[in-house]
Measured scan of single mutants.
Amino acid sequence: MASQGTKRSYEQMETDGERQNATEIRASVGKMIGGIGRFYIQMCTELKLSDYEGRLIQNSLTIERMVLSAFDERRNKYLEEHPSAGKDPKKTGGPIYRRVNGKWMRELILYDKEEIRRIWRQANNGDDATAGLTHMMIWHSNLNDATYQRTRALVRTGMDPRMCSLMQGSTLPRRSGAAGAAVKGVGTMVMELVRMIKRGINDRNFWRGENGRKTRIAYERMCNILKGKFQTAAQKAMMDQVRESRNPGNAEFEDLTFLARSALILRGSVAHKSCLPACVYGPAVASGYDFEREGYSLVGIDPFRLLQNSQVYSLIRPNENPAHKSQLVWMACHSAAFEDLRVLSFIKGTKVLPRGKLSTRGVQIASNENMETMESSTLELRSRYWAIRTRSGGNTNQQRASAGQISIQPTFSVQRNLPFDRTTIMAAFNGNTEGRTSDMRTEIIRMMESARPEDVSFQGRGVFELSDEKAASPIVPSFDMSNEGSYFFGDNAEEYDN
């Protein structure tokens, strides 16, 4: 783990906690998980779902989305002020799938948001429990990260689609708070800032007046979040320049895209947490497990152990491969979309394939898809080993990566060399080191050039047997250095459309 220093740990961010010791953190995270579980059980009762239907990941996603929508204050306010045809701002819903006479049927349900809020609060001892809501947002974000390569979004903001390893959390809503900021990748933060800068260039009043003052505060806050992700002084200094700019424009845009590229080699610290679907927490609570009393951590053995003992089902389209669908969801559960496939294969105990080789589309089923041909199958979400999630980018030494994705962002704290394609990355730096950030740029390029592919990161860190909950005997895996390590390699994943 990167030293926490003055930073709060993510469990504290996750639970809005002030400084807590490890036991208190485990208890408050457990409380959050228990609340999600209780809410899910109650919703299944309301909807009269069978046990099997309640364990269907598509039903879980609909129920999670309903509660997130019920608590989305800004959108609710907007919907009330701008009524649109056929949208009731006070209601929320989605597809629920039921097994009827041996076939899967889709039923569109509609609930009062007020009623959903009441059920959620009741499951969370009367609190709004925003930490639990954020947790579900991060699960949705991790699922998107594993399912889609955001080529269009990258290109629109002047970045290269091969930089997708920097895009963790790119679909997280803005209201996801400190826990959300911690899991956002460098590219995601750059993209958010670039969008602001572009608006400022096109709209003279963007930075002016009372609204402009708020915009400015948001801009500086985002700059500080991004600065905190960088691990070298030169990158941090460049972020200070971007933040202090009187009138952010093209120079800042250039600096930010430069920094994003540099992060492929001088990786930023991005938190990883295993956020599971509500249909995993519900049955665990129903079986009598007391998360608050037992304590829970999002970055240790607990999620692995929970998945070892969970039964989750998914709808499967006619030509999809259930094992591939399982891999997709497994990666999402562990926030591992940008991790090295060699490491993932070792931990999972079966070969993890790149996205383009998977015969599976996303987990969600569109409303126009034919239910007649839908089957369902068990998702295999178990693992051979477990490993500690990392909050750091690993040290800054790398190795060759593949054509589709030119770097990785480690999820697990496991000893290995970190793949990246130096030639491709360095070719993108057209040696432009003039301007006010020239000395920093020169320094950053120097550090990137001296990074050695064969150097090892996370020295001495290994994986653990599932029986080793105290992480007492690390097993340090050895990897084939020459092997392909990137998930979005030469990829044809669908595009994420909101």
Rank of each mutant, 00 (worst) to 15 (best):
A2G: 10
G5P: 08
N21L: 08
G35Y: 08
Y52K: 15
L61T: 15
L68R: 05
L68S: 06
D72M: 08
R75P: 01
Y78T: 06
H82R: 10
P83V: 14
P89G: 15
I96M: 13
L110E: 10
K113E: 12
I116A: 05
R117S: 15
A123D: 11
D128N: 08
L133A: 10
H135I: 06
T147G: 00
P161K: 08
R174M: 11
E192Q: 11
L193R: 08
K198I: 11
K198N: 13
R199Y: 05
N205L: 03
E210G: 08
F230T: 02
F230C: 15
A233C: 05
A234D: 09
A237Q: 09
A237H: 13
D240L: 05
R243A: 13
R246V: 06
N247C: 08
L259N: 03
A260R: 00
S269D: 08
A271Y: 00
P277T: 14
A278G: 15
V280G: 01
F291S: 09
E292V: 09
I301R: 08
P303M: 08
L306S: 10
L307I: 08
S310F: 11
S314H: 01
P318F: 06
M331K: 07
A332K: 06
S335P: 09
R342S: 14
L344A: 04
V352Y: 09
P354C: 13
L358F: 12
S367H: 05
N368V: 15
S376K: 06
A387V: 07
R400K: 15
A401Y: 00
I408G: 00
E434G: 08
T437W: 09
R446V: 09
M447P: 00
M448N: 12
S450D: 14
P453C: 08
P453W: 13
F464E: 06
E465W: 06
S467R: 08
A472W: 07
S473I: 14
S473P: 02
I475G: 01
V476L: 13
S482Q: 08
G485T: 01
F488G: 02
F489V: 05
G490D: 06
G490A: 11
G490S: 00
A493D: 05
A493K: 05
A493I: 09
E494W: 10
Y496F: 15
N498Q: 15
